[in-house]
């Protein structure tokens, strides 16, 4: 039996097509990898998965018959995380879905189900953190801007929350790590990319903020210090709730 390495383009459709390939060619001992930087071992077959919409939608249809809408959403979320080396587990999950006669969403004895559940939890947590840790700064034109660096790619999951909450203000949430952002223009949200080449000069950045911005940042810092009870100091708990990597974008911790 030869091992087969499947290479796909990293998209969700691509993942579904990889599953298609496994069943169409009855592949054995498959390892799935995303992207083109994979260097193959000497004795294995390498197949590049071609992302094809028809195949993807056939697999999706099959998944819909065997999973609840929530189950598909969870699989999509786990994939969105984009964590290196997890592609194989996602494929394993899809195979487990198709190989079982019943809905396996709650089969917590299965390692793929457990892993997907963990990935979803990691994503949810990061999404929740972003809902908490986004700090908008008001720009001169009234738009509220926030820069974030989430551990995983959670921006698409944030749209609904921020759109329904800040319906009457324009806002931008920009993922510095992944170099794209969300922009809400009072009607719709869209994905944007920005060129920071000359915007990053310190002078330009400060001039871009509204007059009130500095005052409210100052007031927020004051508030943050006033509500602390010194005799209950518990740094470990503090850091557990707000890990240090998030501090640089938190107004009150700068």
């Amino acid at each position: 039996m030869t091992a087969t390495a499947l290479i796909y383009d990293g998209t969700f459709e691509g993942l579904l097509c990889a599953a298609f390939e496994v069943y169409a060619f009855k592949l054995q001992g498959v390892k799935l990898h995303a992207g083109n930087c994979y260097s193959s071992a000497f004795f294995e077959d390498v197949i590049s998965v071609i992302t094809d919409e028809k195949r993807a939608s056939r697999v999706l249809k099959g998944l819909r018959e065997r999973l609840s809408p929530m189950g598909i959403q969870r699989l999509y979320t786990a994939h969105l995380a984009g964590i290196a080396g997890e592609d194989h587990n996602l494929l394993g999950y899809i195979r487990h879905v198709f190989d079982s006669a019943v809905n396996i969403e709650e089969d917590y004895g299965n390692k793929y189900v457990v892993r997907v559940s963990e990935l979803v939890r990691m994503m949810r947590r990061e999404k929740h953190r972003m809902e908490a840790f986004v700090r908008f700064q008001q720009l001169g034109d009234g738009t509220y801007y926030a820069a974030v660096e989430p551990d995983f790619n959670v921006l698409p999951l944030l749209i609904r929350h921020f759109k329904s909450r800040y319906a009457d203000q324009k806002w931008i949430i920009y993922d510095i790590k992944r170099k794209y952002g969300l922009y809400y223009d009072l009607h719709d949200t869209q994905f944007i990319e920005m060129d920071f080449a000359d915007a990053n000069m310190p002078g330009n950045v400060i001039a871009a903020f509204s007059e009130e911005e500095g005052i409210y940042q100052q007031l927020w810092k004051c508030y943050f210090h006033s509500v602390n009870i010194a005799s209950r100091k518990n740094t470990r708990l503090h850091v557990r709730h707000i890990p240090k990597r998030y501090w640089k974008h938190l107004t009150e911790k700068i």
Binding site: A132, A167, I229, N234, H241
Partner: peptide, 28 residues
């Protein structure tokens, strides 16, 4: 819920920050 394109909504609760004593800061 956020009605008529107003400001804000109240749902599941979010702790926006934590004081140095480890307590949640959610409300002003």
């Amino acid at each position: 819920k956020n009605e008529n394109k107003g400001l804000g909504n109240a749902s599941n609760g979010i702790c926006h920050s934590y004081t140095e004593d480890g307590r949640c800061v959610s409300l002003l």
